[in-house]
């Protein structure tokens, strides 16, 4: 049997796969956003005094 470009299974499960993909993408965005907020909120950059010295 030759390999077809797109199996019927892929078409049938397209919405499910799309949903999982979008959920994972959203999760990545959330982790990234939380990281930015936490890093900027807790002042992980150099303290002002050190910069002045």
């Amino acid at each position: 049997m030759s390999l077809r470009k797109s199996h019927e299974l892929h078409q049938r499960r397209f919405s499910r796969n799309l949903g999982v993909g979008l959920t994972l993408a959203a999760f990545i965005v959330i982790i990234f956003g939380l990281t930015i907020v936490k890093v900027s909120g807790t002042g992980l950059g150099l303290p002002t005094e050190e910069v002045q010295n």
């Binding site: 049938r12 919405s15 499910r16 949903g19 999982v20």
Partner: peptide, 12 residues
């Protein structure tokens, strides 16, 4: 499986 297959909405 086509008849009973779960969609993303079913899991949701």
């Amino acid at each position: 499986t086509r008849v009973n297959e779960a969609s993303f909405g079913d899991y949701f």
